[in-house]
Computed example of a mutant assay.
Amino acid sequence: MAEFHDLAELALNRDNQSWGNLGYWKKDTEYSGACRALALLLGEDARLDEQSVVFDAGFGCGDQLSLWLTHFRVVQVRGVNLSRSQTAHARDRLAEAGFPAAAAAIVQGDINDGQAWHATLGTDRPSHVLALDCAYHFPSRLEFIALSHQHLAPAGRIALTDFMLADQHRTGSITHQLLRWMLRRSHIAEANIVHRTRYLNQLRAAGFEEARIIDISQHVMPGFAHFVRTFQGKARAGWKARLKYAVTGRFLQCAYRRSILRYCLISATKKD
């Protein structure tokens, strides 16, 4: 059975790169660099350092796992990812880079399944839970936040990049019907896309404090839309992937210009 989350993004990358996020296009003009920039932004906002133990929710094809280990020099990474093909690719990437199982342990599974967390963490408690450009795809972001709080060490941090409704967007509007249609096509639960105030309240209700949301839409949504519109390597991607990226790019451009969605950097600390 074909997976919605597969290896299609490999065609967008430079050789030996396998990033799969929307990218941070403030300075970069090509896909792999923009994706790495978004991961760096998340790691910096999470305050990763040489004492950090990271649980990566939805690690994709694994390039970010190597980034946590090499750039931020974290102690360990653990992770769960839904895609079988991506998880296998990530394992191969980690092995090729020479990382032992003690430094990087990842499993394939549903991030909303507590057993998947236990399979990779055991009784350990990470200092950080990260979700790079994927939480909106989880079956329930609320459940993910609750599991993050449950498994984090005291004073641990959650950090993610995620979509939310623009403050001025009204759920009863015609544009909201367009949004609902696009969410269904993109395998995104409508309950995951909420306004900023509700997002903050969900974090606080789950037991997090010092919650912060930074809008980085201007450096993400138009940049990705421009990239897919002008990408010169379209022949490397299959027609389904080309259609997926074209539709996504056009929608993101529309959602940004018409203030439907915002793309944000979110972080919070677990209460003691």
Rank of each mutant, 00 (worst) to 15 (best):
T87D: 00
T29W: 14
G98C: 06
D28Y: 10
D92M: 08
D6Y: 00
L40T: 13
Q17H: 15
D63Q: 10
A88Q: 03
Q115M: 13
D28V: 13
E44G: 14
A57F: 09
W25F: 06
D92K: 10
A102R: 12
A39G: 08
A103P: 08
F55N: 06
V77T: 13
Q17C: 15
Y24W: 07
D15R: 15
A57N: 03
N81E: 10
D15M: 09
H71V: 15
E50Y: 07
N21Y: 05
D110M: 03
L82D: 00
E9K: 13
A34R: 00
V74L: 08
G98Y: 12
E96S: 14
T87V: 01
Q115P: 09
A11N: 12
V75T: 15
E50F: 07
Q108Y: 01
Y24C: 10
D45M: 11
D45W: 09
Q108E: 10
T70F: 09
V77G: 03
L67Q: 03
A37Y: 04
G20F: 12
D56F: 01
Q17R: 14
S83K: 06
D45N: 15
A57K: 05
A95K: 10
Y31S: 04
A88C: 07
Q64R: 08
D110K: 07
D45Y: 12
R78H: 12
G20K: 08
I106W: 01
Q64M: 09
A97C: 11
G23R: 06
Q76F: 02
G23C: 10
F59C: 03
V107M: 08
S32W: 05
C35T: 10
T87W: 01
L65E: 00
K26N: 15
G60T: 01
L7N: 00
A2D: 10
I106F: 05
W68D: 11
Y24D: 06
T87M: 00
L69N: 01
D28L: 11
A57S: 05
N112V: 15
R36H: 14
D45L: 10
L40Q: 10
L12W: 04
G23D: 02
L38T: 07
D92S: 10
Y24L: 15
Q108R: 10
W25A: 09
L65I: 08
R78D: 11
V107H: 13
S83F: 00
F55W: 02
A101Q: 13
L22N: 13
C61Q: 06
F72E: 01
D110Q: 01
A104V: 07
F59K: 02
Q115C: 13
Y24G: 09
A39Q: 03
Q17E: 14
L40P: 04
E44A: 14
S32F: 08
Q115R: 14
T87E: 01
L82Q: 09
L69T: 04
V74S: 07
A34H: 03
D113Q: 11
L67M: 02
L22Q: 11
D6Q: 00
T70A: 14
V75P: 06
S32Q: 06
S18D: 12
N13T: 07
D45A: 15
F59S: 04
L48T: 03
N21W: 05
S52M: 00
L67P: 02
C61E: 05
A104M: 08
L7F: 05
I111Q: 02
H5A: 10
